[in-house]
């Protein structure tokens, strides 16, 4: 099957000498929901920039649904929709005009462009705002406007660069639902994100980029299997005076009704619950202390950080 996106040995060195990409290779299959993770400056946005022609590659190959961008970038671009990280539309244009104009850039005749504009503005809850200047929209509406604009030519590959950055939880959830729906309808989606929960909830496969290299390229499930230890927080019915010491399960008391406990991959939660029952402790609820993918991400990326530089995830 022809890959939706195929990147081979991609290098990018900027004019100032900074080498952002050091030979990355990546395949994304049609219909996939693919996450690209990495700390700031890892090369995620540069990779997206190369795919959609905003960044000139130094060497390497990129093809979109089998079309090499060096041979027919115009055809490759027909298949791509891009939602950038920062707002990049004319702040003085009306919402409707922004989306319809983008449809025109892809050669859609005026009538079809207007129909598609209405369709996607309605789907993204912006139809009522169609006559407003884009600068008057809230941050979340502006993000949805960029998604509508990216979808108006109905691309087979949708690339989103941190689409939910700065978006409130309710809106983020509704955007996730929308992205799941268009993915279910057959659109291949690639997203970069700082929210590991987002990648875990939405994506089937994931690549982690760090300092211009891909250090992991696998399924989200496989990645989570690499997690050796998980820390759970348990809330109890009984009042606790101290951490209920159980051999092989280290932990600590949080307050008089909850404690945290580490469970290694080979250990059984049943054994843990049995030991707690023997001590007369009833667990009312339990949850992960941190996002599992986030723990793994930090463990993968941290060893590469230079000079103790803080990583943002």
């Amino acid at each position: 099957m022809t890959a939706a996106l195929s990147i081979s040995n991609l290098h990018k060195q900027y004019d100032n000498g900074f080498e952002a990409l050091k030979g990355i290779s990546l395949d994304v299959q049609p219909g996939d929901f693919f996450a690209v993770l990495g700390p700031n400056g890892a090369g995620k946005s540069t990779t997206i920039g190369v795919i959609c022609s905003l960044v000139k590659k130094t060497s390497g190959q990129v093809s979109v649904f089998g079309t090499d961008i060096d041979e027919n970038f115009s055809l490759a671009k027909q298949n791509i929709g891009v939602v950038p990280q920062e707002f990049n539309f004319n702040q003085f244009e009306k919402v409707f005009d922004i989306v319809k104009t983008q449809a025109g850039y892809y050669g859609l005749p005026a009538k079809l462009a207007a129909q598609r504009t209405e369709k996607y503005l309605r789907q993204l809850g912006l139809w009522d705002k169609r006559e407003q200047r884009s600068r008057t929209l809230s941050g979340g509406m502006k993000r949805r406007l960029m998604i509508a604009r990216a979808l108006v030519h109905e691309p087979r590959l949708l690339i989103l660069d941190e689409p939910t950055a700065g978006v409130d939880i309710e809106l983020r959830r509704s955007m996730w639902q929308f992205l799941k729906e268009i993915n279910a309808r057959g659109t291949t989606i690639i997203l970069t994100t700082h929210y590991l929960e987002e990648a875990e909830s939405l994506c089937r496969n994931v690549a982690i980029i760090d300092r211009g290299h891909i250090i992991q390229n696998t399924s989200v499930k496989e990645l989570l299997r690499q997690l050796n230890k998980e820390v759970f927080i348990m809330d109890t019915r009984e009042v606790l005076k101290e951490f209920p010491a159980i051999e092989g399960y280290p932990g600590q008391l949080i307050d008089d009704h909850s404690f945290e406990v580490a469970v290694e991959k080979h250990q059984s939660l049943n054994e843990l619950f049995a030991s707690l029952s023997e001590r007369g402790i009833h667990v009312l609820s339990m949850r992960n202390k941190a996002n599992r993918l986030e723990e793994l991400f930090v463990s993968l990326v941290e060893p590469h950080s230079e000079n103790g530089e803080e990583m943002q995830v």
Binding site: C52, S53, L54, F73, S74, L75, K77, Q78, I80, V82, P84, E86, F87, N88, F89, N90, Q91, T101, Q102, Y105, Y106, G107, R149
Partner: peptide
Amino acid sequence: GTKFQRSIEELLVSPV
């Protein structure tokens, strides 16, 4: 103006 607002990217990513 399109460069300043980065809306030139709308055209650059398109197949025009």
